[in-house]
Design a protein around this nucleic acid. Structure first.
Length: 153
DNA sequence: GCCAACGTTGGC
DNA sequence: GCCAACGTTGGC
């Protein structure tokens, strides 16, 4: 099993939004970055776990845990001309953007980015690097276990 | 709202 | 295939 960190803008999809969905699962739509897409398309496995991170908001940081609950599939919004995520170059035969579905596992105690920066054990986390913009990043087993300790798992 | 860092685009 | 210009991300 692999571990991940997935950023979401809470104004678009928050951890509470996912918790309150009827089946508590959501398509991880709208990823329009090749590196992040490739992680989902090529590396993620059913059952992998991910930290749910709120970004571009007042209090960025860790808010919950989700599980990868589907195989990779085309991002449905790329075919919708009404959507901000519409991709005119995509066809049903040759989609450009791929994603997985995630399932709510639990909310955690909020852990701020400032707090995370204090731990030498997490110093190499991609999300803490200066200039980091990638919305999906791998998390090592050691980092994951350390964070689970922090949130009281 | 600022702006550094990074990704993408497109002319050459 | 280079690289300048532009667009976006996201913490602050």
């Amino acid at each position: 099993m692999q571990y991940w960190l997935m950023k979401s803008e809470p104004s678009e999809v928050s951890i509470d939004d996912v918790e309150n969905l009827p089946n508590q699962t959501i398509e991880w739509f709208g990823i329009r970055n090749y590196q992040a897409r490739n992680f989902m398309r090529d590396s993620m496995q059913l059952g992998d776990k991910a930290i749910f991170w709120h970004s571009s908001c007042k209090n960025p940081g860790i808010y919950g845990i989700v599980t990868i609950c589907s195989a990779v599939h085309p991002d449905s919004l790329q075919f919708n001309p009404e959507s901000d995520y519409f991709e005119p170059k995509s066809t049903q035969e040759k989609p450009i953007w791929w994603c997985v579905d995630v399932k709510f596992e639990r909310k955690t105690k909020y852990i701020s980015i400032q707090e995370l920066r204090q731990y030498p054990e997490l110093a190499n986390m991609k999300v803490l690097q200066k200039g980091n913009r990638l919305s999906i990043t791998p998390v090592t087993r050691e980092e994951w276990q350390f964070i689970m300790q922090l949130v009281g798992a």
